[in-house]
Amino acid sequence: MSLSTSKPPAPRLATPKTAAIAARNAADVQLRGSWSLTFARLRRDPASIGSITVILLIVAFALGAPLVAAWTGHGPTEQFRDTGLSPSGIPVGPSAEFLLGADQLGRDVLVRLAYGAQVSLLVGVVASIAASVIGVVVGVVAGFFGGPVDTVLSRITDLVMSVPFLLCAIALVAVLGPSLPLSIAVIVFFSWTGLARVIRGQVMALRHREFVEAARSLGASRTSIMFRDILPNLVVPIIVYTTLMIPSAIVFEATLSFLGLGIVPPTPSWGNMLADAANGSLYLIAWWMVVVPGGALLALTLAFNLLGDGLRDALDPAASKGGKGA
């Protein structure tokens, strides 16, 4: 991280003007903290800018779902069997009335897409944040205490990692009944392990560093050392991992919904829209039913993955010097 190693201004030419410029430059250098440097690096990366734009557009689209519904005059679960379906019951394609086509019940794909975006974003963000909190706490505690605490926590992590998660998730959801909170809980349960491992490793490397010794000799409590001294050093991996967890959580939710085990129809989610399309291979004649939600899903996951990569490079430029950094 860029520490503010501000050298004392040493004006070689003692004209008042150059001294003033030097002082101002020095002030500029000091003012640019690590966050503003990070943003400056992000701004120079077209992929990051593009992905932030895509994410913001999808967020706006999700928040504006009621507006979309009002504008088209189609509710998200409203069926228009007269106008949305052909006389033989085939959904109509993109048209003036249904901008992105209709689905097998004559519902407006555009409106459902907007409401489905709410689900994807909600599940993706909430599940990732919850999973990263668990991962960080487990990782910090395991790495900091070491010994038996570490052994127990690491074994639990290994255990969760060795579970065939999709099989267990579908068994769990099938028995308890699908719902939004359960989907989130299942995703959180199977997502925290990767971050816990990374954080544990980092904490183990940090725990014998001088600044931790210093805090300890000043009488800081263990909780204080963990959260005040060690945690701030882990901000980079936490931000990057959490960002990269969002797309996997979104795909996980879509997969559960696709299998009929996520969001309960008729509430739209991108996953169950794709399930509707797959049902009876309907998408082969109604391509928009897969291209629209599938494309939106791909755009959102791609944007988060690109943003995660961009954030990693921007937050930790040392790791990416010379084209390195996987």
């Binding site: 797309p247 795909v251 879509a254 997969t255 696709f258 794709l274 399309a277 797959a278 291979s281 998408y283 082969l284 391509w287 897969v290 291209v291 599938g294 899903l297 791909l298 996951t301 791609l302 988060f304 993955n305 690109l306 990569d309 084209g323």
Partner: peptide, 25 residues
Amino acid sequence: DRFGQGFAIVGISFPTFVLGMMALF
């Protein structure tokens, strides 16, 4: 390298079932 990286990030982001349905179509 850029092509390789691009392939990787698109592949990682692609939900399997969407790719499968698109391939079938």
